[in-house]
C-alpha cells in the first residue's frame, strides 16, 4: 500500500497537499486541470520534489526521506526517458546497474525485456534511430528490468498518435499485470482512464483527493474536473 500522510510537496514554491492511500497492485489515473499539480504529486512520490511536511510510506516503510534512485519507483516522464548517446541495450541495462556491469543473467534479462516490448533486433540502435513509439517501448523495457513495485507515468505517451498511445497503454497494463506493480498515471484523456485505470485521483488547486472508482468519477465528475472536461 502506498500512503501519503498529510503530505505537502513543494515544487519551487508551488505546493500540493495529499492525504490518501493507494492499495498495492491498483491502477490509478491522476486527472485534473493543467497546472493543478499532477506532475508535482508524481514528482514528490518519486523524490524529485521536496516533501516539506507529512510522510510518504510504501508497505509501511518511510520512503519520503530516500533519494530518488533508492525509492521503489520507476518513473517515465513526458520526455528525456532515454540517454540519446547510448544504445537501447545500454539504456535498458542501466535499469539493472548504473555501472553497466552486467553478468550473463542480467544480459539475458535485458534481451528478454527488449523482445517483450517488441524491439527485437533493435538493441544496438540509438534513440534517434527509433520512431517515437519505439522510443517509448525502449523506455518501457527499462521499466521492466528495473522491476520496481511502483510505476509512475507522467504522460510519457502524450506525443504519440491515438492508436499508438492505446497500444502503449495496453503494454503498460500488461507489464503492470505481469509484475504486480502499482500504477499511477497522469492523463488528460478520460478514455485513457477508462481504458486501464480502476480508480482516479483528482488533483485540483494544489490538493490531491483520495482515489475514487473510475466509472463513478467519469459518470459524475467533481466540479473542478467537470469544468476541465468541458461538462460544466
Amino acid at each position: 500500500m502506498l500512503k501519503l500522510e498529510s503530505a505537502l510537496i513543494d515544487n519551487g514554491g508551488f505546493r500540493v497537499a495529499a492525504d490518501l492511500s493507494v492499495p498495492a497492485g491498483a491502477r490509478i489515473a491522476v486527472m485534473g486541470p493543467s497546472g493543478a499539480g499532477k506532475s508535482t504529486l508524481l514528482g514528490g512520490i518519486a523524490g524529485f520534489h521536496d516533501l516539506i511536511a507529512g510522510r510518504i510510506l510504501w508497505q509501511d516503510r518511510d520512503i519520503g526521506i530516500l533519494p530518488p534512485g533508492q525509492r521503489p519507483c520507476a518513473t517515465l516522464f513526458q520526455d528525456g526517458n532515454l540517454f540519446p548517446h547510448l544504445t537501447v541495450e545500454q539504456n535498458v541495462g542501466l535499469g539493472i546497474d548504473p555501472r553497466l556491469r552486467l553478468d550473463t543473467g542480467a544480459q539475458a534479462r535485458v534481451a528478454l525485456a527488449i523482445e517483450h516490448v517488441g524491439l527485437r533486433g533493435l538493441g544496438g540502435r540509438r534513440p534517434a534511430q527509433l520512431s517515437g513509439g519505439q522510443q517509448s517501448r525502449a523506455a518501457l523495457a527499462r521499466v521492466l528490468v528495473q522491476g520496481r513495485p511502483l510505476l509512475l507515468l507522467d504522460e510519457p505517451f502524450s506525443a504519440l498518435g491515438p492508436a499508438l498511445k492505446e497500444e502503449m497503454l495496453d503494454l503498460v497494463a500488461q507489464i503492470a499485470g505481469d509484475t504486480g506493480a502499482t500504477l499511477l498515471m497522469v492523463t488528460h484523456d478520460p478514455a485513457d482512464a477508462a481504458r486501464i485505470a480502476d480508480a482516479v485521483i483528482v488533483v485540483a488547486e494544489g490538493r490531491a483527493d483520495p482515489p475514487a472508482p473510475t466509472a463513478a468519477v467519469l459518470a459524475d465528475p467533481p466540479e473542478s474536473l467537470a469544468a476541465y472536461l468541458g461538462r460544466g
Partner: peptide
C-alpha cells in the same frame, strides 16, 4: 546537459562516478 538527463540519472540511482561516466 539537459536537466532531464540528471533527473533520469537520479531515477536510476546514479552515484557521482556514474554521472561522470555517462553524462
Amino acid at each position: 546537459i539537459p536537466a532531464e538527463r540528471f533527473r533520469l540519472a537520479a531515477a536510476l540511482g546514479f552515484a557521482p562516478r556514474d554521472t561522470a561516466r555517462w553524462l
